[in-house]
Simulated scan of single mutants.
Amino acid sequence: MDQKKPGGRTLAGDAYEAIRQSIRTGAVKPGDRLRFADLQALCGMSVTPVREALARLTAEGFTVLDDHRGYSVASLSLAELRDITAARQLCEGEALRLSVTKGDGDWEAGLVAAHHLMARIPQARDDIPSVMREDWEARHATFHAALIAACGSPILLEICEKLFSRADRYRRLSVSLTGGARDVTGEHRRLMELALARDAEGAVAALREHYGRTAAALEGFFKA
């Protein structure tokens, strides 16, 4: 049994967050082998919650299990990037269309608030401009969730959340390559404005283009 912690958290849940964050930030690289001793030291836990965390990370595509080598960080690939991008454009596009159609005043207020908080801080770190700030990334996730929050389908929202998480490593790599050359702030503002104007088709088209630009920025990297 996974030991419960205050606030309903579990050891396995905390181990999952710690290992996933190491993968997201590049502390461990794609293809790196994940040794239990190292992960136990990272998490400050016994092997059982670490093993449970790895099983969850593998199910979500962040790690892979090889019978001979054990666990390792999942590699990045152009094929997966294209697959994730197409799935996000399809699923989040439909969720956004439904949200724009069904959203009420509370949805509008939540979207404006999420955009305001995200826009108040820069995307890049001051010391390393090619790396995203973690607080901006958290607000960025909240903004994209707010866009589709009124779609009315918990299952669709769950799928979109998983796809957003799966795209995280590619998004971070894109930022490291493009730096400030892309007007991400303007793209987000346009998404909000189209959604609030109840232009469902325009908002969906802007969202598809938004994700397509991230993929396009990485095409050359994978083909090099």
Rank of each mutant, 00 (worst) to 15 (best):
D168H: 08
E92F: 03
S153F: 10
S77C: 08
D32I: 06
G186A: 05
G103W: 00
R35K: 12
R20E: 14
G93S: 02
E209Y: 13
K29T: 08
G31P: 02
E92W: 01
T85S: 11
L147Y: 03
G110H: 04
E219N: 02
K223A: 07
E187P: 00
G93T: 02
L173C: 12
E52C: 04
A195C: 03
T48F: 15
A86F: 06
Q21S: 15
G103E: 07
E134R: 15
D183C: 05
M192R: 10
G186F: 06
V73R: 11
I155R: 14
L42H: 05
Q123I: 14
R9N: 12
E193F: 00
R171C: 09
S75V: 05
G93W: 00
V50R: 09
R35Y: 01
S153L: 02
D83G: 01
L163M: 07
G110N: 00
R169V: 15
A145R: 11
E52F: 13
R171A: 13
A119R: 10
Q21D: 15
A55H: 08
E201G: 06
E60H: 01
F222H: 05
T214D: 14
H140R: 13
D32Q: 12
K223Q: 15
R9A: 11
V100D: 00
F164S: 12
A53N: 11
I155N: 09
A86R: 09
D135V: 13
Q3W: 07
L90E: 14
L78R: 09
